[in-house]
Simulated scan of single mutants.
Amino acid sequence: MLKLRGKTLEIKFEECVTCNKEKFYRLAYTYVKNSHDAMDILQESILKGYSNLSKVKDIRALDKWMSRIIVNTALDFLRKSSKETVIDKESIIVDKVATTADENLSYAIDALDPGLKTIIILKYFHGYTINEVADILEISVSTVKNRMHKALSLLRVDIKEV
């Protein structure tokens, strides 16, 4: 067990996962659009995070570190899975409730390159600042800004076409 000022790192990790479980689930679900796959990604990410606790550099950024693991695990899952999309009952219900504009935006975001999609999801759906997105993705702030500008430009073009 790794000691950290009276509390073990494992306990801090458990607290982080417990406090952010809904946010982490939504992050995984944003990529796969399937509740079962999102849960699998989340479980695999928690296991990866726990087994790599010794690599944590900043305990205060444990939630960002876990978000990074979830994003990478989701992207790996998407690369490994076939191009065929499986839709569960929850997705069908959500699609029926969504407006046409919401559907168009969702499809436009899904069509983005994974690197651009990740930045949009972290910034606009999960509320991270540009600096936090840069930390999570381990890229420079200027790269985040450039990619965000490119993604927003592509989204504007896609939405105007519809």
Score class of each variant (00 low, 15 high):
residue 94 V to Q: 05
residue 21 K to I: 12
residue 99 T to G: 11
residue 79 R to G: 12
residue 42 L to R: 04
residue 116 L to Q: 09
residue 42 L to Q: 10
residue 68 R to H: 09
residue 4 L to W: 00
residue 115 G to N: 15
residue 105 L to Q: 03
residue 99 T to V: 03
residue 109 I to S: 01
residue 42 L to M: 13
residue 63 D to E: 15
residue 14 E to R: 10
residue 142 S to D: 09
residue 79 R to T: 15
residue 145 K to C: 13
residue 80 K to P: 05
residue 155 L to Q: 08
residue 106 S to K: 03
residue 158 D to H: 15
residue 100 T to E: 15
residue 26 R to M: 09
residue 50 Y to N: 11
residue 81 S to T: 11
residue 24 F to L: 12
residue 2 L to C: 03
residue 93 I to K: 11
residue 99 T to K: 01
residue 78 L to I: 10
residue 103 E to V: 08
residue 11 I to W: 01
residue 59 I to S: 03
residue 40 D to C: 13
residue 41 I to R: 03
residue 145 K to R: 12
residue 126 H to I: 05
residue 57 K to T: 12
residue 152 L to N: 05
residue 15 E to D: 08
residue 127 G to V: 06
residue 21 K to F: 10
residue 128 Y to P: 07
residue 81 S to Y: 00
residue 76 D to I: 05
residue 59 I to C: 03
residue 161 E to T: 10
residue 66 M to V: 10
residue 42 L to W: 06
residue 124 Y to E: 14
residue 94 V to G: 00
residue 103 E to H: 15
residue 72 N to K: 10
residue 55 K to P: 09
residue 54 S to V: 11
residue 7 K to S: 00
residue 18 T to N: 15
residue 8 T to E: 02
residue 144 V to M: 08
residue 12 K to S: 08
residue 24 F to A: 11
residue 54 S to I: 13
residue 138 E to F: 07
residue 143 T to C: 06
residue 56 V to I: 09
residue 155 L to V: 09
residue 30 T to F: 03
residue 46 I to L: 13
residue 84 E to A: 05
residue 142 S to T: 14
residue 85 T to E: 12
residue 137 L to R: 04
residue 19 C to A: 15
residue 4 L to P: 00
residue 14 E to V: 03
residue 156 R to N: 11
residue 23 K to L: 14
residue 88 D to V: 01
residue 114 P to H: 01
residue 56 V to W: 02
residue 107 Y to R: 12
residue 79 R to Y: 10
residue 89 K to M: 14
residue 128 Y to Q: 01
residue 2 L to W: 00
residue 82 S to A: 07
residue 103 E to K: 10
residue 117 K to V: 00
residue 73 T to D: 04
residue 51 S to A: 13
residue 123 K to R: 15
residue 51 S to D: 14
residue 13 F to S: 05
residue 125 F to D: 09
residue 39 M to T: 15
residue 131 N to R: 11
residue 10 E to M: 06
residue 147 R to Q: 10
residue 54 S to N: 14
residue 20 N to S: 11
residue 52 N to G: 11
residue 18 T to F: 11
residue 120 I to D: 04
residue 87 I to K: 12
residue 121 I to D: 06
residue 73 T to I: 07
residue 96 K to S: 07
residue 137 L to H: 09
residue 36 H to G: 13
residue 7 K to N: 01
residue 45 S to V: 08
residue 146 N to I: 09
residue 28 A to G: 07
residue 30 T to A: 14
residue 76 D to P: 13
residue 111 A to D: 02
residue 66 M to W: 04
residue 7 K to H: 10
residue 139 I to L: 14
residue 6 G to C: 02
residue 45 S to G: 12
residue 79 R to D: 15
residue 131 N to G: 11
residue 93 I to M: 07
residue 116 L to G: 02
residue 159 I to W: 03
residue 150 K to R: 15
residue 124 Y to P: 06
residue 41 I to C: 12
residue 155 L to W: 03
residue 70 I to H: 01
residue 101 A to N: 08
residue 26 R to P: 04
residue 129 T to Y: 12
residue 3 K to W: 02
residue 122 L to A: 08
residue 96 K to N: 07
residue 70 I to W: 00
residue 20 N to T: 00
residue 138 E to D: 14
residue 104 N to S: 14
residue 101 A to K: 07
residue 50 Y to M: 05
residue 8 T to R: 03
residue 97 V to R: 13
residue 150 K to I: 08
residue 31 Y to T: 02
residue 139 I to V: 09
residue 109 I to P: 02
residue 51 S to I: 08
residue 111 A to M: 04
